[in-house]
Design a protein around this nucleic acid. Sequence first.
DNA 1: TATGAATGAGCTTTCATTCAT
DNA 2: CATGAATGAAAGCTCATTCAT
Lengths: 209, 209, 209, 209
Amino acid sequence: MAKAAGIKGKEQKRKKIMEAALKIFSKKGYSPAAIDEVAREAGIAKGTLYLYFQDKEDLFCSTILHVIDNLALLLQKNINEQMNPLEILKSLAFYQLKFFSQNRDFFGIFQTIINENLLSSHKKLFNLLLIRKQDLINYEINVIDRGKREGLIRSDIESEEIVNSFDGMVTNSIKQMGYCNNNVNTGIDVEKKVKSIMQILLDGVSERK
Amino acid sequence: MAKAAGIKGKEQKRKKIMEAALKIFSKKGYSPAAIDEVAREAGIAKGTLYLYFQDKEDLFCSTILHVIDNLALLLQKNINEQMNPLEILKSLAFYQLKFFSQNRDFFGIFQTIINENLLSSHKKLFNLLLIRKQDLINYEINVIDRGKREGLIRSDIESEEIVNSFDGMVTNSIKQMGYCNNNVNTGIDVEKKVKSIMQILLDGVSERK
Amino acid sequence: MAKAAGIKGKEQKRKKIMEAALKIFSKKGYSPAAIDEVAREAGIAKGTLYLYFQDKEDLFCSTILHVIDNLALLLQKNINEQMNPLEILKSLAFYQLKFFSQNRDFFGIFQTIINENLLSSHKKLFNLLLIRKQDLINYEINVIDRGKREGLIRSDIESEEIVNSFDGMVTNSIKQMGYCNNNVNTGIDVEKKVKSIMQILLDGVSERK
Amino acid sequence: MAKAAGIKGKEQKRKKIMEAALKIFSKKGYSPAAIDEVAREAGIAKGTLYLYFQDKEDLFCSTILHVIDNLALLLQKNINEQMNPLEILKSLAFYQLKFFSQNRDFFGIFQTIINENLLSSHKKLFNLLLIRKQDLINYEINVIDRGKREGLIRSDIESEEIVNSFDGMVTNSIKQMGYCNNNVNTGIDVEKKVKSIMQILLDGVSERK
DNA sequence: TATGAATGAGCTTTCATTCAT
DNA sequence: CATGAATGAAAGCTCATTCAT
């Protein structure tokens, strides 16, 4: 019982440290973030941090992956088999926008790490992120393909191109958004953004003759 | 005369240093890039660099702005009054893609710096970049508005949203591209990418009934 | 009864820890040896170690002295009143060689600690070791003196010089030896080494005319 | 000219740092010696040290080898072709004793590093030292062999054993000696020590019948 | 102007020691 | 008695910046 609590406490503390790390890394980026500061933010001693993470890089990678996995979970949780492809895309857009509007600082570091060169030193992280990124893209391609089969989406445009446009729209929308932890307001803004994205994606912007 | 030559030479050397800096900053990012390495790449002594730039941050900001201004120049040069709004958008997409396909490494650092938090230390740069970014966005909004007036673009979607989608598509396309200094091949790939972007942007991806 | 068992167990555990410490200290030296590693080797928790030893230095000193005392015991056990001075010297050489051939790693740390400066921090240990070293030297001087009285050893060389030469020969022989826990083989090698030492010590190396 | 002075100055500064390092390493040993302290002793900043040496280990190895090479030079300088084998041995003993009596602190660290296990991390240094040690031993063996051919030394004892005894005697004599920078006194003490060593080595200590 | 040796603040990481359980 | 998580001082090392030449 005490042991179980200990294990639970250990995992809890790891999370606490990662939350502090997320805050600092998000604010400053990898190099300028000081381990000292992360420890202080987490309310622990510097040495303690090294009981939970091998080194600065491990802390960084673990933290980033933890957040990414949370996002992936959120996206999965809000998709079900009954939804049609367009509804799925909408959900993906909505929850990505929502997630990043509530983790605004993280978006910056996220954009940075999705970059081959700058991650040259974080090889391990880069590969893991690449896999996750590709997983999402592949999933989206499947959704588009299904949309084509169901007569919802044009077949004369490559699915990859559609996914690329969709992802770009979503990412850029996140970039435009300000930070918000007000759920009501966020919900509205995000809803509007998503509608706009879906409308442009589906119908295009050219005047119909 | 001698003075003029000296000034010219001074400007020339500044450029040489910035080119070296671009290479190193692009490859490593701001913090991990060492002044030593930039100096070596530029073929000058470390101390000399400080005759041309105040400090590391000044070097960074100057370098980034120099590249951004080059890009802005390239975009301007390839737009003229005779082009219609759609042709202008196409040109903007084409030359951004082309520029970054030839400055692949730079894209990473560019993505990073377009981020409020990570630039907390580079306030000056951030503001200057923000202005330039906003300038482009404003210009694009004007183009879209003109398109609406000319009956080329739907009026029922906010121009800001259209610009947002367009920029997102372009940015994401750049992200997908690999590095290429082969002009022929690049030209073709870029052309294809741009066509795809414009098609989706204009017509949308939904199946017409 | 329970108390006696406890005390006995306590002493037993102290020995166990010291054995582990000997292994680690011998392999790495004082500073690089980690308390963590000693505890792991001893199969106890780090904190437990501090119940048996005041601090790292205490552990080190206790361990070294324990080994030295074992050596002293071994030497004493193999000397008896019937032996003549030369036989005693032979025995001293033989069992020192044998002891260190079976505790090869320890010899290194032993050589190190028999050094005034490097023990500046281990003052207590240094003094205790000095006493033991001097005890052995004094004993050897007595043996030599007895040899002189018995007409076995020249009287025209100071006993101190003879002891010095003898000790040097033995120490250097140990240095030359490799590690061996094979008793048979060791015995032979050691026997040969001792013979050689005694021959040179007694008869010298110059050609008799 | 200025350049030549610069190079000379650079080498001079390296030596100055090594002298400081020798002092600190000799006093404390490798691990406890702090780079900070060496720098302070050398009258330079910590960072400067790293312009002359790769890291702490490089500083250590360079320093030790520098001293060893000085010793080797001293020994070579005081041997010439006209000397007979016994005179050569005497010279080797004399100048080793003299050298270490004037570099007393160094002897401790020297004894320590001539130890396989403790040098596990200093592999490079260990190998270089081993070579130098073996060079000296080989040279001494040659001297002994020559002595045998010239009828000065008994042929019925292996040269290796003789060398081993000789080296042991010398080393142990050094160990007994205190520090001395008074040349006159040292000269006398050393002379006496050497005489004693040579007498015992050549004639042995047994009573002639 | 140009140099590059020198600086030292600041960083990551280790590890002997403590103490609540 | 035993534990091992937590601590924080202290170490090695880097690198932007300065300045005498």
